[in-house]
Nucleic acid binder design. Structure first.
Length: 1135
RNA sequence: GCGGAUGUGGCGAAAUUGGUAGACGCACUAGACUUAGGAUCUAGCGCCGCGAGGCAUGGGGGUUCGAGUCCCUCCAUCCGCACCA
């Protein structure tokens, strides 16, 4: 057999490709373009394992195939080189992450090159390269400078918003913005100082900084976005994650929720990915409905000042006007208020001067009566009281009085802030700031824009998707975190509620999740009125209601919702059937939408769907609610308290963020002494000296998350060296978007969603022409590792406990099983005796299960390279390894009957620590890159996950050698004939071409490989060595086995690379058959085969088929009831 | 709980629109050539049965002349989301 020397051949052509720059891509407009993209890897220290190239091989085949078909193919590669592992490594070793990253990239490139990929390395991008992240920062700037206009349904420059504000305030602005955005007029806008204006704009910008509840990972010292948290643990590293409120950079991805969901219809992506994204966005249609709060004032009027004997009407009116004071005490209150105003303390006066006239954007009153009291300052709209603590509140009596007063105020719905005199004297700025923050926070949490005093009705708004079931409401549940809870809680319930809220706050995500089954909650003591039925229903708090979804309040309908049902059962609340077809059991609610409404007042008799419509009309008409679309998706947290990421191009002045100018970009990562947080808990960038502008304004300390750089890299490849734009107009115009994208499905709700978001944004702003970046997406499956285990007992003494005087005994698979099942010691006693000749082991019993449990870790991973395909362990290598690794030198084995040691196997993720990583380098060396490429494709459908198994690789290797053999004689001389090809040979070639085109088109690359094998087997049988057949086949094989094809291509006398050949044209005429073999079925079972001429008509086919002896036999001579003839396919005879 | 995917020989898998189930490869068996074989070639290889033949695509049911493929139902495994009102 001819010999194909893959090592020589592959090196030779890899060198040639590099020298000739065969894979360099021009932005050439004469050819049609085709853009093939792999998800770029994070260059980890472990290098590539055989699972990584699966997708790369597939995309390389597609790229090369398209190139042969005459396309100008862009097939780039780069590195997502910012990320946690390099930083963790840096923390441990002090090694700069850039150095680690660089080393790893070198290794990756080498491995990729060895596999013969056709990447244009001149277009390589690295997200951690300043010339790249300059443009990531630039895009950040664009987002900061934009707002989302719901009217035009796209992002617009912030200047257009400022213009509107200056002209007419925000009354007519329909934008995606913070929930707490207050209404203001043009006059307000103009009167505000710069900082206030900037703060207002932050509520609209697409990237913004705001007080947010975040996923905080203490172990990593950073926040994480929702997609980086899995089951309450960080995706990277698996550390616990808790909820925490802190100011954070965020991206307003929710602005695009609707378009991100809708445009999934435009792309050819796997349905599971689309479903995951839809699910993540979580659009639901429903309604918000207001429930009025019924809350009798439970406080007896016995404290504070005494009631007036005779209030004058003037004073009463004055008090009544504010709706806050007790009218019966009008005279006294007014008197006190006046007196206090005339004689303010220095501190009160100082504060008043800073707060009056809406200086902090909200109106304030001083010395204001509330019930029986006078408070120092009050923001009526926010119901925030500010008390200046004068220092005379020290006596026990006074303290009790203060507490009662605080309770009353709280109960009436006021929040009280106490300010110390010293604070006002010493740092009034920070006091003002605190008040401002509080006001902003309250504004955010109460969407209502009207001024409302406690005299106004207090209401709770709920979100529901089943407003039809509103007559079935028997209680209401609030999230424990809801602001209004404090105000609703009656004194009797106060202790219980506070305890519950406290517990809820401190529970980690993980605890909360693992405890889904337990029903818990507390009654607040308050009631609300069902706006439809007028019924009074109790208000509870419970942690099954999430503060972050909808309004954080739920109208509970136990008959239709299982959680409400469980809650009702637990607290013995009524369960009201509201649909006639509802089947409610002792343990289950029925959420059906089938049937007619019952017990539902005005909705009775309607179907639930009609009832929803009618109820929606009703709430709008009555002004008690509005239909509403809700999304599950939240804005994406964008800052990370880490070092190894893109710096955010922002500096601060007076606490307000400002962007750096374009010519200041890139803002490069500073050097730091350590990659840890500072002593005050600030991010690592806080360690950098001079991390501020030339004017001394401090830069932002957090960096961008991993997904920032990967959200737009596919555009950079189009024009990677451009330092004027992220990519030129021409390049963007020519390459448009990715035609074929391949990568893992694990990025479904991360990278794949964020990229779509940024693409849509760049589209809105006119920078690009497409609003989806990848036309077609394919998910390659994961290749798992198959781990091998040895089972060792680490020295067992006579009582079954570990004894270090005795060597570790390793059990082969079957003896171990047997030992466990019968507790049989026979096998180890000889060994034990060998080391302890004086001990008599006859009566010793060992419970193997106990030994396993007590002597944990006896099941040990064995490096898979020491284990053969039939699970047999190489004892010598193993001993050596154990010795170097564990320092053991006494090892005993208990073997199978045939003297072999057989390992246990298990499929797991490939990882270094499991010793199950299969390195492609070894396989490339042994079999060649072409073999590995084709074998990986041959394993099965590309999108399927499967455990790696090297066993079949010989088959593919054999195939390549057979193909080589067609060109060579026994002495390995190149012998190709120029004789014309025979009909049969042409049939083989064109049969292959046809299948190849179909298979590559639908990415069925495993069957492509099969088809090559079939063709080569047939040609070998024909002893075909004709150029007319072999040359086209060489071209067709080039995408799969580029090295071998290149070698043969040149041997055939061609000078240029096979990559520039034309793909052979398929000619159907070679496949036409004169005769067709018809399978003949009798009653659906195959009974005979008939060779028939291809041009017979159905009638003739039927006659011929029936005449066949086997058919005669099976029909037993009866006349067939029916004969089905499918021309060119099959005949079926029914008897 | 919700959503999705998958289930075919000893193993990886084919069967694109309903038309000969198991292509191709691995492993295995026998043989040939060989000093040798972890090279190469030939033949065999779903299960039961000596055979004729029967049974077989997770289980059960249905539609059809004909079902791995379509419909219903149940089971198992994997993935994603998970108190989303």
């Amino acid at each position: 057999m001819a010999e194909y020397k893959h090592q020589e051949v592959e090196k030779k052509w890899q060198q040639y490709w590099e020298e000739q720059q065969v894979y360099k891509v021009k932005n050439d407009t004469s050819k049609p373009k085709y853009y093939v993209l792999d998800m770029f890897p994070y260059p980890s220290g472990a290098g590539l394992h055989v699972g990584h190239p699966l997708g790369y091989i597939a995309s390389d085949i597609v790229s090369r195939f398209k190139r042969l078909k005459g396309f100008n193919v862009l097939h780039p590669m780069g590195f997502d080189s910012f990320g946690l592992p390099a930083e963790q490594y840096a923390i441990q070793t002090g090694q700069h992450p850039a150095i680690t990253t660089d080393t790893n990239i070198k290794r990756y490139k080498e491995q990729l090159t060895n596999l013969g990929f056709s990447y244009d390395w001149s277009r390589e991008v690295r997200t951690s390269d300043p010339s790249y992240y300059k443009w990531t920062q630039w895009i950040f700037k664009q987002l900061f400078n934009s707002w989302y206009n719901k009217e035009s349904d796209k992002a617009e420059h912030i200047d257009t918003l400022i213009a509107v504000f200056a002209k007419e305030g925000n009354a007519n602005v329909n934008a995606v913005c913070d929930e707490d955005t207050p209404a203001f007029s043009a006059k307000d806008w103009e009167s505000w100082p710069e900082e206030s204006q900037q703060k207002m704009l932050l509520k609209y910008r697409l990237t913004f900084i705001a007080e947010t509840t975040v996923n905080w990972c203490p172990a990593l010292g950073t926040v994480l976005s929702n997609d980086e948290v899995k089951d309450g643990f960080s995706e990277r590293g698996g550390h616990p994650v808790i909820k925490k409120t802190m100011p954070q950079w965020s991206m307003r991805i929710t602005a695009y929720a609707d378009r991100l969901a809708a445009d999934l219809d435009k792309v050819d992506w796997p349905e599971p990915i689309k479903d995951m994204q839809r699910n993540w966005i979580g659009k639901s249609f429903g309604a918000e409905v207001d429930f009025k709060v019924l809350s009798p004032n439970p406080f007896p009027k016995e404290r504070g000042l005494s009631e007036d004997a005779n209030p004058s009407s003037k004073e009463s009116d004055f008090i009544a006007a504010w709706k806050t004071g007790n009218p019966k005490m009008a005279k006294t209150l007014v008197e006190y208020a006046r007196r206090n105003r005339k004689n303010p303390t220095d501190q009160e006066d100082a504060l008043w001067q800073r707060l009056r006239n809406k200086q902090i954007g909200s109106k304030v009153r001083r010395q204001h009566p509330i019930d029986d009291f006078i408070v120092d300052f009050i923001f009526l709209k926010q119901q925030l009281v500010v008390e200046v603590d004068g220092g005379y509140h020290d006596s026990a009596e006074q303290q009790e009085f203060d507490k009662a007063r605080m309770d009353l105020l709280n109960h009436l719905g006021y929040e009280v802030m106490v300010v110390k005199n010293e604070d006002v004297d010493e740092h009034i700025e920070s006091v003002i700031n605190k008040i401002q923050t509080k006001i902003d926070e309250i504004d955010k949490n109460s969407p209502s824009q009207q001024e409302k005093g406690p005299g106004d009705e207090v209401k709770i708004t709920v979100f529901t998707t089943r407003i039809d079931t509103i007559y079935g409401v028997s209680f209401m549940v609030l999230a424990p975190e809801a602001e209004i809870v404090k105000a609703l809680t009656t004194p009797e319930q106060k202790a219980e509620v506070e305890a519950y809220v406290e517990v809820a706050k401190n529970r980690s995500e993980r605890e909360r999740m693992s405890d889904v089954k337990t029903v818990s909650g507390v009654f607040t003591g308050s009631y609300v009125i069902n706006p439809f039925s007028g019924k009074k229903v109790p208000v509870y708090i419970a942690d099954y209601v999430l503060a972050g979804y909808g309004t954080g309040a739920v109208m509970a309908v136990p008959s239709g919702d299982q959680r409400d049902f469980d809650f009702a059962k637990h607290f013995d609340l009524p369960i009201i059937q509201i649909i006639d077809q509802q089947k409610i059991t002792d343990t289950e609610a029925d959420p059906t939408k089938e049937g007619k409404m019952v017990n539902s007042g005005m909705l009775d008799g309607l179907s639930p769907l009609d009832a929803i419509q009618k109820a929606n009309e009703y709430i709008v008409e009555k002004g008690i609610g509005t239909p509403k679309v809700n999304y599950r998706m939240r804005d994406a947290i964008f800052g990370r308290q880490r070092y190894w990421g893109e710096p955010i191009p922002v500096y601060f002045e007076n606490g307000v963020p400002y962007l750096l100018e374009d010519d200041q970009l890139p803002l490069e990562l500073p050097e730091v002494d350590k990659y840890l947080p500072t002593e005050d808990g600030e991010p690592p960038l806080g360690r950098a000296d001079d991390w501020k502008t030339a004017d001394g304004a401090p830069y932002e300390l957090t960096t961008m998350p991993g997904w920032a750089g990967s959200s737009w890299y596919f555009f950079r490849y189009m024009d990677p060296q451009n330092d004027q734009e992220f990519a030129s107009k021409e390049a963007l115009e020519y390459w448009q978007q990715v035609d074929f994208y391949i990568g893992g499905s694990e990025h479904a709700t991360g990278h794949l969603l964020y990229s779509r978001f940024w693409t849509k944004f760049l589209y809105d702003m006119g920078f690009i022409k497409v609003d989806e970046y990848a036309k077609k997406l394919v998910n390659q499956g994961m290749i798992q590792g198959v781990s091998a285990f040895s089972i060792g007992l680490g020295g067992i003494s006579e009582d079954g406990l570990p004894n270090l005087n005795i060597p570790t005994i390793f059990f082969s698979k079957n003896p171990w099983r047997k030992s466990i099942s019968d507790g049989n010691l026979n096998m180890i006693i000889p060994i034990l005796k060998k080391y302890n000749p004086e001990v008599d082991f006859t009566d010793v019993k060992i419970n193997f299960t106990n030994v396993l449990a007590n002597n944990g870790g006896v099941l040990r991973h064995v490096p898979i390279e020491m284990v053969s395909g039939n699970d047999e362990l190489d004892i010598e290598k193993f001993k050596e390894w154990r010795k170097s690794w564990a320092g053991e030198y006494e090892i005993e084995f208990i073997m199978e009957e045939d003297g072999k040691y057989i390992c246990q196997r298990e499929t797991e993720k490939m990882s270094k620590s499991k010793y199950n990583v299969v390195n492609p380098d070894n396989l490339v060396e042994k079999y060649g890159a072409d073999t590995l490429r084709m074998y990986e494709m041959f394993l099965g459908p590309i999108e399927q996950s499967k455990p790696w198994n090297t066993n079949g690789i010989e088959g593919v290797y054999k195939f390549l050698r057979k193909f080589w053999g067609l060109f060579h004689d026994k002495q390995d001389n190149f012998v190709v004939s120029d004789d014309p090809a025979s009909k049969d040979e042409l049939k083989v070639l064109h049969g292959l071409l046809k299948k190849l085109e179909e298979d590559v088109e639908r990415l069925s690359l495993n069957t492509s490989v099969s088809n090559f094998m079939i063709a080569v087997n047939e040609l070998q049988a024909m002893k075909c060595n004709k150029r007319a057949i072999l040359e086209p086949m060489t071209i067709a094989l080039a995408p799969f086995a580029p090295h071998l094809a290149e070698e043969l291509w040149h041997a055939l006398g061609n000078d240029s690379t096979v990559c520039d050949a034309d793909f052979p044209v398929f000619d159907a005429s070679h496949l036409e058959e004169d005769t067709i073999e018809y399978p003949v079925m009798v009653n659906g079972k195959m009974r005979a085969k008939v060779q028939l001429s291809a041009d017979l008509n159905p009638k003739e086919i039927e006659e011929q088929a029936l005449a066949h002896p086997n058919v005669q036999k099976w029909t037993e001579g009866k006349t067939p009831k029916k004969v089905i003839v499918v021309p060119k396919k099959i005949v079926n005879v029914v008897v």
